[in-house]
Amino acid sequence: MSDWRMPAETEPHTCTWMAWPSSGYADGDEARQAWASVALAVAEFEPVRLVVDPSAIREAHRWLGSAVEYFPAPLDDAWMRDIGPTFVVGPDGLGAVDWVFNGWGGQSWATWEKDARIARRVAEWAGATIIASDLVNEGGGIHVDGYGTVLVTETVQLDPSRNPGWTKDRVEGELRRTLGVREVVWLPRGLTRDYEEFGTRGHVDIVATMSGPGTVLLHVQPDPKHPDHALDAVLREAIPGQWDVIDLPAPEGIEDERGPVDHSYVNHLVCNAGVVACTFDDPRDAAALDILAAAYPGRRVIGVDARAIFALGGGIHCITQQEPAIPGGLS
């Protein structure tokens, strides 16, 4: 049994880490406005530590001022959930899993020479013990309940462009060693758009999350015209029968200029006393925020327009990474 444990996102945080979308990766004010809005929303609940490419520090200051703490480091992109470490806790304090990052399976459009170093830099800044792993993985590819269960998808950890030759047993062994989990629940796949050019090939954090032990919030596409409508039954079959499933219906808007969208309310961040959730200027936004408020009682839910983030391939959860607080006040 591992000495390390990945806490649930609902457990107390020391801070949330983000990365700033520098020029060349996300040109234009629309994306920067979205990233800044998320950072400011998170900062209402806990400190935000922002990794910024040295060339973009002045620009980030213009958007965020003193609301966040800045950490300069060369960046390729800004998906902190995936390029940053996965934090864990243990008898000696804070740990940080340094997965191998290869641009979501060596995508043709991706560059990752700089990003592949970010997990260790963040771990060092946080004062965490680095836990090296040979598994090609991203933080968006896992969700834990903090009590020994992790959700994954077969098309991420078993992706031959990520982990050629790895079996489920080998992946599960590595997740047990690094995250301290006992049960690995394999969902067969993610949302349809996530398999297109700028997708991750099936990250779990856009389709399902656990709000507590034995409770899963599940993305549901009610519109039969959308290809994800048929995914609902497939995912439910993979979820343990004794679990409670809370439906999070997708927004009514189902298409953009590129085709069916993957807009999802599942891709939210739980903070200290709060939840920062994706909205889409959609008629279902209010109902989704109400569902999240009920799923996380006692937390204030803030909605942030995430359309500019999704246009680049992810959501609010994808651009944030929580650092858990150490029980007993250690840091």
Rank of each mutant, 00 (worst) to 15 (best):
G127Y: 08
W109N: 00
A126K: 09
R62Y: 10
A41E: 09
A39V: 07
A39I: 05
G84S: 13
V144A: 10
E46K: 05
D53N: 08
Y147M: 14
T149C: 03
V122L: 06
E46W: 06
N137I: 05
D92H: 15
G148V: 00
V42N: 04
V38M: 12
V150W: 09
A128L: 01
A73Y: 15
A67I: 01
T155L: 07
A123C: 06
K114Q: 11
V52N: 06
G90Y: 04
W109Q: 03
F45L: 08
M80D: 03
L50N: 07
W112T: 00
W166M: 05
V100M: 11
I83E: 02
G146W: 01
R162K: 03
T155C: 06
T111V: 07
G65I: 09
G139Y: 07
A56G: 11
G148S: 03
P54N: 10
P85Q: 05
S108R: 10
V88R: 04
S133N: 02
S108D: 12
G95S: 09
E69F: 14
L75Q: 05
I142R: 13
V48M: 07
V97H: 04
I118E: 01
G93N: 10
A43V: 13
V97R: 01
D82V: 00
A39L: 08
V100Y: 09
E154S: 11
A60S: 14
D92M: 15
R162H: 01
V88K: 01
L94M: 13
L64P: 02
P47S: 13
F101M: 03
A128E: 00
G65Y: 09
